[in-house]
Design a protein around this nucleic acid. Sequence first.
DNA 1: GAGTGGTCTAGACCACTCC
DNA 2: GAGTGGTCTAGACCACTCA
Lengths: 262, 262
Amino acid sequence: MPSSAPAEVPPPAAGSQGVEQVAPSFSPLYQQIKALILRSLQAGEWRPGEAIPSELELAARFKVSQGTVRKAVDELAADNLLVRRQGKGTFVATHHEEQIQYRFLRLEPDHADALGGGANRTFLDCRRLRAPADVARALQMKQGEMVVEVRRVLHFSGQPVVLDDIWLPGHLFKGLTAERLSQYRGPMYALFESEFGVRMIRAEEKLRAVLADDDVARLLEVAPGAPLLSVERLAYTYGDQPVELRKGLYRTDRHHYRNELN
Amino acid sequence: MPSSAPAEVPPPAAGSQGVEQVAPSFSPLYQQIKALILRSLQAGEWRPGEAIPSELELAARFKVSQGTVRKAVDELAADNLLVRRQGKGTFVATHHEEQIQYRFLRLEPDHADALGGGANRTFLDCRRLRAPADVARALQMKQGEMVVEVRRVLHFSGQPVVLDDIWLPGHLFKGLTAERLSQYRGPMYALFESEFGVRMIRAEEKLRAVLADDDVARLLEVAPGAPLLSVERLAYTYGDQPVELRKGLYRTDRHHYRNELN
DNA sequence: GAGTGGTCTAGACCACTCC
DNA sequence: GAGTGGTCTAGACCACTCA
């Protein structure tokens, strides 16, 4: 966004400050630094899991003080784009090496004793098709462009709990097949990150209560007409670009969706 | 709550740092300052909506630098306990003068055109009774202690959408009646704050999909067996003390529960 | 113009990690 | 011991608010 000049910031001049970009409105130096680091992340200058340069190096590169870099990095870490590790460095966040299996899944068992040990995934389908109108709209694609459609079921403690229908832009996920998905160990978003270079960084969900139709009832092993939690998720990568639409149906007889309000 | 000693911190000594409280493990100075400010908030030294002392005053009072106070205040502002206003001061957060009517309500209309203008509240019931087991457990009270039970319906655009059953510790809400609730203009939490000195600062929700029983169906004007979003909320005041249990049932045919994941 | 929070700098020392 | 992020200080100037 900022200048046309190389990824550098105008010199702070004597009494510091005095940064005047060309067109846009003023913004604090640390916000500009944040934007520059963000640009490097998006461009893949440092890959997920790798360390970025130290604060002192970044300060030298951008010709600002360490404190200013620190504030920029603090915000990026708060956004879960970077991870700070004292004594080691600052790292690009990754869906690999994550403590929790499912980064965005807010479902948890009603009773902790129900071991959350393993979720088994079953991929029922993975095909390419022309985007239906609502999918195209959500993913900001043209209607009729190719998308990948995936259907899967998650089992907890042997019970089917989640049925997900997932749509991904076809041009970003060229070699994606049911086989690749089935064979992969670890979070789906980790696969997307390392195999397709698409990193999910935030998401929005819309929740509703719905009734199971016959198809869904069979797959989730509930009676037709049973209540299900409908979770429509739109996930974004860098630059607020939507790259995944997911319509999930959750059984909530032994689990619940947990949310914290602040 | 303040300590036996005046609310002050040991002097930083020459090379700064060197703060050693008696028993607990070490923690950064700004965390200790944060805890002291929190204590003052809880004790009501400054009331909701009022300004707290300026950063320089606080720095003098706690015998630390302005930067350290700033970091403490930054975190309290991030937690929505304080509100910073440039040029004016830092203020204790309040449920009055809030832009949005419902601080914790995540429900929004499917189509923005559906005017969110006004939500009409109808209070169906407000009585005192001995806490049922589950309510007592959630509110960390003894079973059989008195609680206030409130039932209300929210209407949006003339349609009933939310049915809430609310339980509050009786000893904290002595004079609460249906009449007080009905007459009050503004958020319920604002009433709780100014009339009963109980400020809600965060909450946890558990969501499920359920079916409407006959009673509920009548009140929300849906068919018996219609799907409803069940939202169980536990709201906390200072010190992680639970002070409100709320079981809500939401119609989600024209609205949805919105959540952001980061 | 005084007072407030907001930004930026420079330099110090601490805590942790790794060699 | 060198290098990293984490904390703390002191002082400067900026942007905003209000009298």
